[in-house]
Every structure is written in structure tokens, then in C-alpha cells.
Write a protein that binds this DNA or RNA. Structure first.
Lengths: 341, 341
DNA sequence: TTGAAAGCGCTAACAC
DNA sequence: GTGTTAGCGCTTTCAA
């Protein structure tokens, strides 16, 4: 009862037709009579035949596989984006190949058009993996379908959020509350990998302050890593300054959690003496009552996957590039309030 | 300069040898003279030749691809296990195919030996995806290499942790502190998918109480979902009981966070009036000063991947089944203390 | 509407 | 040590 070795020939023989006909019938191509189609389907079902995708890949060149390239898999943001991508792509019958690139070399290997991966996938989704102009044009010359998340290339469909605008709005809110000295904490580019998101949020932070006529002070920016402990250390550094800020905007919720911890340790009441805001709106953030910017990475992943599935059609009709800016929104909670008088 | 279409024939021609020789040379097989090997390697490099894995898969039957099956991708535990698996497998040159199974039907489709996926992977890692005896024997009859994480089948190598023992030790600690009424909160089987972990932790909880002669009270067990909010609701339910528990053991840190939130809302001091403990030791848990059981899912993922890579050798030498019980350890922090007098 | 046959790019006997 | 050749299981002209 081992149906492992059932090939298209077996089905053809059983149905009394040629393999070509089986191939057509099973793929619902035209030019197959209804009667024949039924015969073939019955035979296939009886034999528990499953098409060997490897063979069909070799014959067609189409792999029905999509590669997802991320800097890491174990962070809140990326695991959710992955989840969204996988949901849509699996549903559509695609295999999802996941690769994390932890250094520049690995990144370039994938992003150069002739990468070995190239022949194993029909498309690639780069999530927060920055492509250089050279890589972009190399990829553009291949037949690969590309979508980026978190970066706009101008060449490929993209899903991004307005990091700068959202950060600006958040900081504007702090200024509205009366804050004049607002600190900023962010994780810098990790291990040799460029990462544009923190920079965009920093620019929005500066914008918000500048626009309000408050002006931004680079002395209030602390660049660190991505962990809670690092956020706490950075916040501590800010809070121990002679003219300490009355509010801290952290570029991610984890860092904001760290800031809350530091405030607790230093005995600064939140939000009475210190306001703290983050970015992401993770599941725990509402429990921490954290003011933050909400984003939905899973939805971004689903959108990216959907864009990828539409790519062939778009290219054929040479439609305009589809760039989606996913929704974010300010979530005002209890960690922000007016500064002490 | 499009090296996309470079085939083994091109390399053979360039090097002035046969394709068979190229194939051998490039795979470092014996029976190739050093001189020839050099010639071939040079030719391949000049042409920027990359082997077409699809073709070689069809010829050999080996896919050099491993499928990872998880219930979901966006949870703390699974994203870290995935991360560990991917790190090892990518390093070893394998492609990692990820599939999440969200319902019974999808699970069975994958777990039955003749699944379409079967021909696309050399091996499968099931993470907290419970296999039935029928599925186990079906899979066992295939040539697939299987490893399970979070479940022991007796048929395949496995990586697990001692959920029951760890929970027992944690509860024993609570009893040592003087607690006699200890509540339990856990997430039940999700959407139609069986899930053994919460049950094992519950049994350990009961063990701990029974062993101490305290005895367990099913009235103090609340089964809910996996979110922080659900944990809070469950804890609230326990705390509003007439004879409320003095300690709450949550089967995961997220649920424990919920319990902490509920305690705060109800004005119960932690750990003065109420002790709270969790399970997982997530990154934020130390910031929350939560007593919990530490586990390292990424290490479990790496171990599972390593087991998979060893499988062929093990089978050949019919060595004994390798079942790894990954380390867990009690982390005593500030959310647990003696009950009020 | 159907079938015969030539690939897709590689590997693995088998012969030399 | 190297080459010849027959597949791997499917798709896709081209003819019928």
C-alpha cells in the first residue's frame, strides 16, 4: 500500500491514456474531454497519486516556492511577518523557504542575482534586508519576482510603514502635553547589517521636535542594542543627566519596557515625573499600559505575500509598481502625561 | 553577463572533460585526478556556474531540504525553535521549508506518509505537533528522517523538556515557602489541535502539591487561552474566590504576566499578599522580576536539527534512538515569597 | 482531443 | 581516472 512510487505513467496506464493527457487533465488544462478528465482523476485517486513537484520543476522551471529572507527569526516583528507570509503563500500552494542572513556576506550572496538560491525559488521576499543599488539591478535582471518589506527600492513592490511620520506624531503628542526635553533611545544597526528603521524613527523624532519649535538636541539621543536591558541602561543614562528629559521616546516597545524598569529603579514616577513611549504595540504593551505606535506585522506579511502572488500579472500588463504603506496609529495610554510643573 | 543558464555541459566543454567528470569533481568525489579537478573548478568559477539543485534532486531523489511543521510561527516558543533549527540546517547546506498547521486536517495531511510534501523533503521536524500511532507508523515506513520536538514517539529521535518535573519543582518551592492553596492557570488545546504541554505542567503542579501532602484541588485550576488578557481574567477568577489561593502558578510567562496585572488591578501586593510564578523565562520575565522555569527553545531547535542531521548515520548503524531532554531550571525571583501570616 | 517523443540538468552504472 | 549513456518524472511542442 506504499503509494510512494506512483508515477504519472502508472496513472496513464490505469486510465488507458497517454501521460501527456494525464498531465493535462490533472492540471485542468483545456483540450481534454470531460470523459477523459474523469477517467484520469479516478485513476489518480485510486492510486493515491501525487505529482512529483521536483520533476515538474525541472520540466517547467517553475518552482512554486518562495524564499523569505530575514535578518533573524526570533524577534517579535519578524516572527509575525513570517507568520503572515506563510499563511497566504501556503494557502496558495507555495512552499515557503526561510533563510536568515546574519551578516553582510550572506546577505549579498542571496541578493546577487546569480545566487544558488535563485534556481530554487520563483520569488523572494526581503524583510528589512536592505538591498544596494547594484543588487537591485542584478535582481531586476533575473526572472525572480521580488517584494520587499520595510524598504522601498523603486524597482520592486514594497510594504512599508511610515516610521518617520508615526514617530513625528508621537513626539508631537509629547510636546502637546508640555514636554520640552524629550530623550530618544534606539537600537543601532546590528552586527554588520544595515538597518534603516531606527534611523527613520529618529528622524521623525527630530521632525516632531523641530516642527513644534522646540528643536532637537543630539545630546538626548542614546543608541544602543535591542534588548530590554540595553533599553534600561540607555534610559538610566538619560535620567542621570543634569538636565534630564521629562519624556523618553524609545524606538521599540522592548526598549520602552527597559526605560520603565529604569524609571522604577530610579524611583521616578511614570507618568508623574517621567513619560515613556514606545513603538510597535506588542501584546504585552497594553498590559504595561504603554503609550506607543501600533503596527501589525502579520498584516504586513500577508500584504507582501499577496503582492508577490500578483507580480506575474503586474509585470505582464506592466502595471505601475505597487507600494503599500501599512497602517500605524498612535495608542495613547497611561505612561504619558504632562511633565511635572 | 547572465550566468543564469550555465549548465554542467558548459562547464564540461570549457574544461575539456565530460559532464560526468564535472559532476564528480564538483562534488569532491574520489576518482578524479587533482589536475582535472582544478581544471573543472576553474571552469566552473569562470562561468559562475551553480549546480541546479532541482535537477540533481530529480536524479538522486535527495532534496537536501527539511520541512519544519509547527502549530504557529508567531509565538515566542515557536519562533525561537525555528530560529535554532534554521541556523543549524542552513549552515549544513539544507533548505528549510516551513509549514504551519492550524487544524487537524492540515496536520494529518502532513503526517500521513504519502503527503505531497513527502517528495519535497528528506526530513521533517514536528514541533509540538502531536502524531497519532497510525501516523507514526505511516511515517516510519517512509524513507523520511523524522525528529520531534515536544513529543516523544518512541519511533523517532526527540527533543523534549521535563515539563512535569519542572512544574513539580516549582510548586514544591511554593509549598516550601509556606503556600497551601496554589492556583493553576493554563492555556488549553487550541483550535482543534491537541497540545500536550499544558497538561504535563498541570500534572507536575498536582504532583508537587500531592507529594508535599498538601493535595491538589481541581477547583483551583483555570483553563483558558494563551493571551495575557486571558491570564488576567483567569487570575481574577481565582483571586475573587472566597478562599482565594495565596499563590498562582501559570503554565506560561504570558499568563503569569496577566496574573500580575490582575493582582495590580485588584490591589493585591506581589509577593506580599500573592505569589506568582510562570514557565518559560522569556526575555521580559527578568525585567518583570518573575519567578519562573527557564527553558531555551532556540537550543532545543538546534538540538533537533543536529539530531536530524545524524539520523542517516544512526539508521545505518541501527543505533539506539536518541531522545534528548533539554535542560530547564528554576529561576527564583521577586514575585514569590512566603504567604501572609 | 489525444499521443509520441524530445527535452529539463543532473547523477550513476557501466565500460573503457 | 574518465567518458558514454540511460534514466529521474514531468511538460510541451508537434503530428495525427
Amino acid at each position: 500500500m506504499d503509494s510512494a512510487g506512483v508515477t504519472i505513467d502508472d496513472v496513464a496506464r490505469r486510465a488507458g491514456v497517454s501521460v501527456a493527457t494525464v498531465s493535462r487533465a490533472l492540471r485542468s488544462l483545456p483540450n481534454v474531454s470531460a470523459a477523459t478528465r474523469h477517467k484520469v482523476e479516478a485513476a489518480a485517486a485510486e492510486l493515491d497519486y501525487h505529482i512529483d513537484r521536483t520533476a515538474s520543476r525541472l520540466a517547467t522551471g517553475r518552482t512554486e516556492t518562495v524564499g523569505v529572507v530575514v535578518p533573524m527569526l526570533d524577534a517579535w516583528y519578524f516572527s509575525r511577518v513570517m507568520s503572515g507570509i506563510e499563511a497566504i503563500l501556503s494557502e496558495a500552494g507555495y512552499d515557503v523557504l526561510v533563510t536568515s542572513v546574519t551578516d553582510e556576506a550572506a546577505r549579498h550572496r542571496l541578493a546577487s542575482g546569480n545566487a544558488p538560491l535563485r534556481k530554487r525559488v520563483d520569488g523572494l521576499i526581503f524583510v528589512d534586508v536592505l538591498l544596494t543599488p547594484d543588487e537591485i539591478s542584478a535582481l531586476d535582471q533575473t526572472s525572480l519576482h521580488i517584494v520587499t518589506v520595510g524598504q522601498r527600492t523603486g524597482a520592486f513592490p514594497a510594504v512599508t510603514i511610515d516610521n518617520r511620520g508615526a514617530a513625528r506624531d508621537l513626539v508631537a503628542h509629547l510636546v502637546d502635553l508640555g514636554h520640552r526635553r524629550v530623550g530618544f533611545v534606539a537600537g543601532g544597526p546590528a552586527a554588520d547589517l544595515p538597518f534603516s528603521v531606527p534611523g527613520e524613527r529618529r528622524d521623525g523624532y527630530a521632525d516632531g521636535l523641530d516642527k513644534a519649535g522646540v528643536g532637537h538636541d543630539e545630546g538626548l539621543e542614546v543608541w544602543t542594542g535591542f534588548t530590554l536591558a540595553q533599553g534600561a541602561a540607555a534610559a538610566r543614562q538619560l535620567l542621570e543627566m543634569p538636565d534630564a528629559p521629562t519624556a523618553i521616546f524609545a524606538a521599540s516597545d522592548v526598549l520602552a519596557f527597559g526605560a520603565l524598569q529604569a524609571a522604577r529603579e530610579l524611583g521616578r514616577a511614570v507618568p508623574g515625573e517621567l513619560s515613556v513611549a514606545g513603538f510597535d504595540d506588542r501584546e504585552v504593551s497594553s498590559a504595561m499600559d504603554l503609550t506607543t505606535v501600533h503596527q501589525d506585522p502579520a498584516a504586513q506579511g500577508r500584504a507582501a505575500a499577496a503582492l508577490l502572488l500578483e507580480e506575474p500579472a503586474r509585470r505582464d500588463h506592466s502595471e505601475t509598481l505597487h507600494e503599500i504603506v501599512a497602517e500605524t496609529r498612535l495608542v495613547l495610554r497611561g505612561t504619558t502625561a504632562a511633565p511635572p510643573p
